[in-house]
């Protein structure tokens, strides 16, 4: 049986543990055995993106140590954390150093979940059923960082009963941006409200994203607007077994 290391990411662990439990379920159902490296904390992205490169480098070192103990691929429910590992870890260490070599190695075997399912396991139908109208928000790092444009949609289209409707401006940032959301809250607010408006316009019952950060922001925005529309992680839907509408 294939094994993978779970990279659960700090935001998902703190706020969406249900998503992680469901991810374990989905992987096991597809005959993939997850292992969980216990020493993982945060990939260092918030530090890196705020300019604290020395701190980010320390966290990257720790992450590489934690996941470098095994040769297994790494799977994660967050596009932006995987983007950090893919594109910024190798930059943090000088070429030729042992850590740089390890960073490049791990960047090559760390996958965002939808990428892992569609491109590694070659699975688009995970046997889920969710008879509702759903729209998809393309998270910035998932889309532009990792280039995962169609993978989440392929998975959603294979869900029984699910009707995927277009989100106007689906690839425009929701205004989260990590520290950006608290450094410039009013700008973040305008961007978030624009996203919420578009979600409401789509007519969907739920909006799906592949990143905890976007979900905190969009979910909070929908809550504040008093909207019944749910903000869900794609894993929430891929684990659904709902009956017919």
């Amino acid at each position: 049986m294939q094994k993978v290391q779970l990279f659960i990411t700090c935001l998902t662990e703190q706020f969406y543990p249900g998503v992680l439990k469901k991810m374990v379920g989905i992987l096991e159902k597809l005959d993939v055995e997850p292992v969980f490296p216990e020493n993982q904390t945060c990939c260092g992205q918030p530090f890196f993106n705020s300019g604290f490169q020395s701190e980010a480098r320390k966290m990257a070192s720790a992450w590489l140590k934690t996941f470098g103990r095994s040769d297994l691929p790494v799977v994660s429910p967050s596009g932006s954390c995987v983007d950090m590992v893919h594109h910024h870890y190798p930059e943090l260490f000088s070429a030729g150093s042992a850590e740089h070599t390890l960073a490049v190695d791990l960047a090559g075997r760390t996958f965002e979940l939808t990428d892992f399912l569609v491109n590694q396991l070659k699975v688009v139908d995970v046997g889920a059923s969710y008879p509702h109208k759903v729209t998809y928000h393309a998270s910035c790092h998932q889309l532009r960082g990792l280039g995962l444009k169609s993978e989440p949609k392929q998975l959603l289209r294979a869900v029984r009963g699910l009707e995927l409707v277009d989100l106007p401006e689906e690839d425009v940032c929701c205004g989260f941006g990590g520290v950006f959301s608290v450094v410039y809250p009013e700008v973040s607010r305008s961007m978030m409200e624009n996203k919420v408006k578009n979600i409401q316009r789509s007519g969907a019952e739920a909006v799906v994203a592949c990143d905890a950060g976007c979900l905190m922001n969009i979910g909070g925005g929908l809550n504040k607007a008093g909207s019944p529309i749910k903000a869900l992680h794609i894993i929430d839907i891929l684990a659904e077994k709902g009956g017919d509408r």
Binding site: I8, E13, Q14, F15, Y16, P17, G18, L20, K21, V24, F36, E38, S181, V182, V183, P185, E186, S188, R189, M192, M216, N217, G219, G220, G221, N223, K224
Partner: peptide, 23 residues
């Protein structure tokens, strides 16, 4: 403060945790 810079725009999700215990 300073986390009100988040909540003045939208609510913050409740801390949940619990994955490690479940595992």
């Amino acid at each position: 403060a300073p986390a009100n810079r988040w909540t003045r725009v939208r609510p913050f999700p409740a801390f949940a945790g619990g994955f490690r215990q479940w595992w």
